[in-house]
Design a protein around this nucleic acid. Sequence first.
DNA 1: CCGTCAATCTTGTTGAACAATAAGATTCAA
DNA 2: TTGAATCTTATTGTTCAACAAGATTGACGG
Lengths: 232, 232
Amino acid sequence: MHQAPALPLPQKLADTLRNCLIDGDFKPGQRLSEQALCTQLGVSRNTLREAFRLLTKEGLLEHKANRGVFVTTPTISSVIDIYRVRRMIEHRALAQSYPKHPATARMHEAVDHAKAAREQQDWHAVGSANMLFHAAIVALADSTRLSEFYAQVAAELRLSFFLLDNPELLHAPYVDMNAGILALLEQGRPQEAAAALDAYLQQSERTVLAALARREDKEEGKSKRLLFVNKK
Amino acid sequence: MHQAPALPLPQKLADTLRNCLIDGDFKPGQRLSEQALCTQLGVSRNTLREAFRLLTKEGLLEHKANRGVFVTTPTISSVIDIYRVRRMIEHRALAQSYPKHPATARMHEAVDHAKAAREQQDWHAVGSANMLFHAAIVALADSTRLSEFYAQVAAELRLSFFLLDNPELLHAPYVDMNAGILALLEQGRPQEAAAALDAYLQQSERTVLAALARREDKEEGKSKRLLFVNKK
DNA sequence: CCGTCAATCTTGTTGAACAATAAGATTCAA
DNA sequence: TTGAATCTTATTGTTCAACAAGATTGACGG
């Protein structure tokens, strides 16, 4: 007998849209038409706009005046910023955690799911599981505000992944690293776990940045070529 | 020739309301009537509601279904959570900062302002300057996301101050502690600065929590007495 | 004194309307 | 054909009015 959530509609709307975004149903840079979406979702324009504000504040959408909302396109600098946040929060959460914290159970689950998904080469699921793993790390700090903030930033980071091809490269190598971090934590060696996390973050950031830089080069090439054609 | 901001109206609205909140124009727990505010501010109800969503997401307002929005009433646990966040973010930002960072200039300014305001016993201004000081500490980490998050949390914390009497006790003692932290930082001793910050945070948290606990006791007394009267 | 029920007010959501802006299409001149 | 100015159109920004749904108040009857 699960009671109806009774959550305000715009909030629920934002939830479903957020899911669409982190599932990759919308591509970065894509414009979201108000009219199209509100007929498609069966809500009024005003309600949809309230949901848009929420997601804009979360960094998942960008609001350009008189032009509408667009799915955020991650940039080099946004990725750098996000990894800076991750380092600061995750490292400390891990380093000063205590091994019997309830969140370790969630870390276990996440690792298991990630391994299972890797078996089936479902890289999207691997990425989701990894996200859950690191959310659990943050949960070690026992701060709801921190956890919410982290979830936001993680969702934004996830947008970059859809920009990049080769999802295997982006997710698969990290399953074992996560497992290693968890092992160290449970052996009561949080400092070493934190060090392993730093290695994880460094490698992950480097991979994402490199792939993103390649992509930006390509984009630039495209636009330059277009420019050239137009000039000619 | 200052170009018009062209910011969307709801966002500007949220800014003005946020200022009202951190200036104490609205008291914690107070209900904000849609009708009253939108006539008073000269905007439509829909626009106001969008601004409400923003501020609710920031934690400054609470949205109760079918009841309206209320100014957030800080609790013991929210204060604990906020100081946990402050410790994690400020400590690390300070510890791994480098002394010539541009933000140190802002720290200087803040300390000067705080001292000047203390001269004139303007405790509200002292509090604002202290807030700026710690925002500058976070800026040492060079992360826009982190700074925005911190600003949010600091604003929420500020709400607790309006709940408490004796603003002098809440702000005055910390001016010199901040000055000390800055001095250590500029002497190239970030670790010691971070240690001093920890002391600051501990004392500040203890003060706020104690005052808040006293207040909650009093409130409870009131309601119990009311209950008693009703029973009788 | 206590619970029930209706009256009333507020919020939740919708739909339509109009101004303002930006992008695309068109026209005109060189 | 090119370039540029203008017009058109579509979309967003904001407001208003309306009604449903839920909550608060107060009156009434037990």
